[in-house]
Design a protein around this nucleic acid. Sequence first.
DNA 1: AATTAAATTTAGACAAATCTAAAAATAAAT
DNA 2: ATTTATTTTTAGATTTGTCTAAATTTAATT
Lengths: 223, 223
Amino acid sequence: MNFTSTEENYIKQIYHLQQEKERVNTNSLAAEMKTRPASVTDMLKKLKNKKLLQYERYRGFKLTEPGKKIALGIVRKHRLWEFFLANKLGFEWDKVHVIAEELEHVSSDELISRLDLFLGNPSFDPHGDPIPDRNGKIPQVKQLNLLSLPLSQQATVSSVTNQTGEMLDMLKHYGIGLGTVLRIIKRFDFDGSLEIRVAKQPPCIITEQVAKNVFVHYAKNTT
Amino acid sequence: MNFTSTEENYIKQIYHLQQEKERVNTNSLAAEMKTRPASVTDMLKKLKNKKLLQYERYRGFKLTEPGKKIALGIVRKHRLWEFFLANKLGFEWDKVHVIAEELEHVSSDELISRLDLFLGNPSFDPHGDPIPDRNGKIPQVKQLNLLSLPLSQQATVSSVTNQTGEMLDMLKHYGIGLGTVLRIIKRFDFDGSLEIRVAKQPPCIITEQVAKNVFVHYAKNTT
DNA sequence: AATTAAATTTAGACAAATCTAAAAATAAAT
DNA sequence: ATTTATTTTTAGATTTGTCTAAATTTAATT
């Protein structure tokens, strides 16, 4: 079956809200979609008719299994395009979302499977969110050394190996701790040092010796 | 100003029809758009209101200068995406058009200028049609040797240097002459021979010695 | 338990893009 | 120069997604 861009946007947004709350309600979806509750109700009926939604009036709603499959397909497209925009076209990580919102609705399946291959079957988008595979399976978090983190790929600090006081003191000075979200802005091959950016703080430089001891993972929410 | 996908499709199609006939008429546009003449009339009024069209009822119509600028922008996007699909994702040249029809409506200007750069500012799409630059200027035809023709890039035979009888006889046997449209299917590095395809004929092999004498250009219509 | 507040749905209207069927203008043919 | 045929436009209806305003259901409070 085929869906309009609007239907796809609703499905995707319901999926995202479901991640936080088992059952979704009309008002919160309306807020996310920047539309009115009455409009949401209209769409809910349509999606229910198409068997994508479990929905009884006044009772909240959630995606059916087929609905979830479709949501994951859209999320997959969105994140693959984000990866393309950041890693191939050189967009800043915070500019890719808006453009991917349009690209995700291009309908060719072969386009997506070829794009996936072209990008090297990436598992995480530039925001650190996992990219579902063609079957809708979401990759688990994967730890890697800060030195191996691709440029401008956001990641979360998950462990620090050298636990000496000097090291922790230094990291604390930079605002880096477990759970800190950061990304690499520039890699200096001369001495292996990294210019990194923690949250919205000004960028700072850390040496290769420090980076060597910091491990990160891509996904955002889990520590 | 901003346009819907539908408006953009009309504008683009009017532009293409104008290439053949100075002034376009309702029925032929309806045929191209696979819609009814009545629907075309409605859209013509809308485009006239937006100053993109010179149009008086029953009198035919053509794009204004601003309208033409917009058409060229859409054509540019379409052909850049076609180039991307064929040369980066490995699509066959005859599969790219349908997908580019969707991609061309993605609205970000920065996306297009970065894509253009990423692709190396190409001048011709995989069908041999010229890609307008950011100012709407259309590149002139460019001759090149058949040996330098990129794989699966369609081109038109524009001249043959060695005009001996044997050569012309051979080319005639293969169905190759001035104005013949062809493309390279495979390049054999072992002996430099080429597997080429002329129109819809079965593929054939020509030697490096022959190819060396054949010059082609990308654009389709001009000899 | 009755009242007030909040969330949700219905009813009816609107804009965009399409359609059919009928009317009007232009072009072609006798 | 009429008539006939073709092209184009109008008029009115339909679909999709949206809206406002009013009605209904559920939740919260006294």
